[in-house]
Design a protein around this nucleic acid. Sequence first.
DNA 1: TTCTTTCGAA
DNA 2: TTCGAAAGAA
Lengths: 260, 260
Amino acid sequence: MLEARLPQAALLKKIVEALKEMVNESNFDCGDSGISMQAMDSAHIAMCSLLLRSEGFEPYRCDRVISLGLSFSSLSKVLKCAGNDDVVTLKAEDDADTLGLMFESPKEERVSQFDLKLMDIDSDHVSIPDQEYDCTVHLSSAEFARICRDLSTFGASVVLDATKEGIKFSASGELGRGGILLKQQGSVDDSSPTSTRIEMREPVSVTLSLKYLNIFTKAAPLSEVVTINMSSEIPVLFQFSIGDIGHIRFYLAPQIQEDD
Amino acid sequence: MLEARLPQAALLKKIVEALKEMVNESNFDCGDSGISMQAMDSAHIAMCSLLLRSEGFEPYRCDRVISLGLSFSSLSKVLKCAGNDDVVTLKAEDDADTLGLMFESPKEERVSQFDLKLMDIDSDHVSIPDQEYDCTVHLSSAEFARICRDLSTFGASVVLDATKEGIKFSASGELGRGGILLKQQGSVDDSSPTSTRIEMREPVSVTLSLKYLNIFTKAAPLSEVVTINMSSEIPVLFQFSIGDIGHIRFYLAPQIQEDD
DNA sequence: TTCTTTCGAA
DNA sequence: TTCGAAAGAA
């Protein structure tokens, strides 16, 4: 059986809000080391994965591997019933057909118990090799979300150009064109965790669908920093940390650049 | 004739907002002791009543009994023209076909006068006996509203189980099931007026329509506490106090519990 | 489904 | 205080 207690319901709420726009339902694989999930969007274009390490729960107990087929919209509805500061406890028996969620208010005068029906979901579990990337950019997730939203006005796709100087986002369309450059912050001014930082082997330029990037940025409330890992020709990885308990990763293949 | 002056238009606004979703039009009975109203919803399932004592007005004058047939949506529109801190004066001649509403801004630099047409409404005035109830629960009206809204996700009806320990709300449906327990607060910690308190002769369990409860909770802005009076088999009474000038009461018959 | 209204966040 | 997002009503 699984039993996992998380002191802040807000965290779980944000995780589900971050993923529900991209994935309708998915299997949550619970094991010794924690909970993980992996899914593609319904069009099978982008992929996401979630990792929540057992150390992030107190306590965490999972005797044997369990796969919980959950609907994100149902999960979201149930989590709307939890206060942000509630303590959440997840429980599932082996071979259970429901997931139990208990919410306890901080003062313990209110206890809610929900039992969510589980689904049988065929999961096409693609294994993702741990990739070396030509370029890794750390930047403010709020800034990234803002840029993707703003550039959506101009076109359906954005070009990311990463050099040692900084990362540039550009889009063009009927209105005209737009470009936003985030400069790498000098090492002296490295104080802020949300400063733009770039590690690179060589410059990379990729074209990506803004529709998907705007879906990924729903994860911005989870982490103030997003890490973009890029090489030409292979899917770009966007990673949002979840405290120090895990992360959400999004993968999106670059579009073939057509010169016009 | 009627002449009644209320120092806070906000109060009257909240009263009308609380009732207008349930009742389209109704007779306001004005007499010596104050203003009262009683109506059923259009489906004749739930009932509500309003009492505003004459002592709550300054001054209050009503020589003879007048019945004012008012449309709640019209009344709501007119009250939208009043500032929250305006002083309201209601005036109606005997046998008048309009109700006069005067709004005076606090600094008296602005005076608005509205005359609302009255309607001829057949009222089936049901007399409600003052009932003894097996169980009375006082709880935060905001919390109650939140619970009814949350549980609407799960099903169309909610089961209320009141015991000495607390009151439990549960609902179930396609998603799964949900239950919320509010514990009775210890008498030591009785400081907060919105703490859950229960007075009972014996435990009560009733099933109620969430659709109606969600209509009743529109009255939550009037009072931070709602009082639920229950016995098995007879209509449940929900009471929201209006300062110390009166109250709104809602009555809803329990559904027959079907065991499956 | 769309619009309005309300609530929370910046 | 202003803005945007989310909830509720038409």
